[in-house]
Design a protein around this nucleic acid. Structure first.
Lengths: 253, 253
DNA sequence: GTCTATATGGAGATAGAC
DNA sequence: GTCTATCTCCATATAGAC
């Protein structure tokens, strides 16, 4: 896809001799890893896991093909490393924000749903709008992974579900009477809306004739939060009423 | 991926001599096309466009490799044919249901948002739950296409946007004061939730510890409609109030 | 840690016989 | 319309030199 550059990286690395120790300890090695991860993130996001070869990635990263196997084992290991890298950062901030929301509402009253949702989604907004450009690729990739029958059920769960559980638990406190299945389905709808939105596929731009721009994430986030908050409330309110009726009916039988 | 069967199809076709005329006229030819489309739908849904070879597809369809090129030109032409085939059926029913909802509310009053959303989503529910099994593959594939930066903006628009415009127009009548950008964003959130849900990736099953089953589409549809209806109302109500304030402020300047 | 070289297999597409 | 045979190129992965 791209010829190796003649930027003298080979020479530039010569000041650093290989030392004894485990793989991936040296700073040169770390830099190589990051270059491969950056390229993989961008290219996987564009055409998916199977649409990109390891050679495409190492070519774009301007490192040798064999280094992908050396650092990540195989192609799937590379994908997982790409997903994991930023998931950790994301989970850390999501978790901290959820704690803050719960702490602010401490004991006295349930947290506001909008605040809980914001704690979960704002870290994405910050990073996509104002973080390094790799984040945009990352979110496009996550949307594909989330919607993939092959990877959706496994990779997403592995890297995101612990904090998702924490999020759902916070919603549970905000809507104490909500049924479990309603909570989870409402989360699922949020997940679909969120990943598609941050993927910025450009479809909405075309459909709306320019009234909406995928890239204007601040104004879409302003809408996503109340949309989903209202959805959560509607589901739980409806269900609560319905289940009370059902309970009454059942008791009578 | 699979060996060619020895089912005697070659002999069975011999009663039908090739006639003069355009390609794909004969019933044998039609059957071959359908077999290829069925296999492509199923396999593309499983591993995406690049994860499956034309040979995988024709092997599963038990037809010769070269027939894919003959009938569909190339691999991308095959993908487009897969998407188009069921899109037409879907669009027809969506359109008819939207007409019915609008007719029922004729002139006197705006249609109910829930009814409009149901007109748009119920055809998916019917087909996935009670249609031929190919529909489940189809919806999984659509979810991947919708979330793909490469195909999302083009294929989805091409095959679905005309009826989506009609849907949005019906919502516009239900919420006459809603701003255009709110309408389109709200649709986009619905689209993300809808495609992920009907993709049945299994993630929610694992996350919810069995409380939700991806495959139980009737009960998820019961929730999707009120969730999205509430989201539409919340967006438009909020925005209407905000824009009135803004208008006042602006007028004062 | 990095690179060269290569093993082994599969990819998409088409020309031309039937 | 269908099938055989083949062209040309690229895939992942690894062994072993440096």
């Amino acid at each position: 896809m791209q010829k190796k550059g003649t930027t003298g990286r080979k020479g530039a690395g010569r000041d650093r001799l290989p030392r004894a120790g485990t793989a991936g300890t040296g700073s040169r090695s770390q830099a190589t890893r990051e270059r491969i991860l950056d390229a993989a993130e961008r290219l996987f996001a564009q055409r998916g896991f199977y649409g990109i070869s390891v050679r495409d990635i190492t070519g774009a990263a301007e490192v040798d093909v064999a280094l992908a196997s050396y650092h990540f084992g195989n192609k799937q290991g590379l994908l997982e490393a790409v997903v994991m890298r930023r998931a950790e950062d994301l989970n850390t901030e999501r978790s901290a924000r959820l704690d803050a929301v719960l702490a602010a509402a401490k004991g006295r009253r349930p947290p506001k749903i909008e605040d809980v949702i914001d704690a979960f989604t704002h870290p994405l907004l910050d990073r996509s709008s104002r973080g390094s450009p790799g984040w945009k690729s990352y979110f496009a990739l996550i949307a594909e992974v989330n919607n993939s029958p092959e990877f959706g059920g496994v990779l997403m769960s592995r890297f995101f579900d612990p904090v998702v559980e924490k999020f759902i638990d916070a919603i549970r406190r905000a809507l104490p009477d909500c049924e479990e299945s309603d909570l989870y389905w409402a989360y699922h709808f949020l997940s679909g809306a969120l990943t598609l939105t941050f993927a910025e596929t450009g479809r909405i731009d075309k459909l709306s004739g320019g009234a909406c721009r995928s890239s204007d994430l601040d104004s879409v986030h302003e809408r996503l939060v109340p949309y989903c908050a209202a959805g959560f409330r509607a589901l739980c309110a409806t269900k609560r009423a319905a289940s009370r009726q059902a309970g009454t009916r059942k008791a009578r039988k």
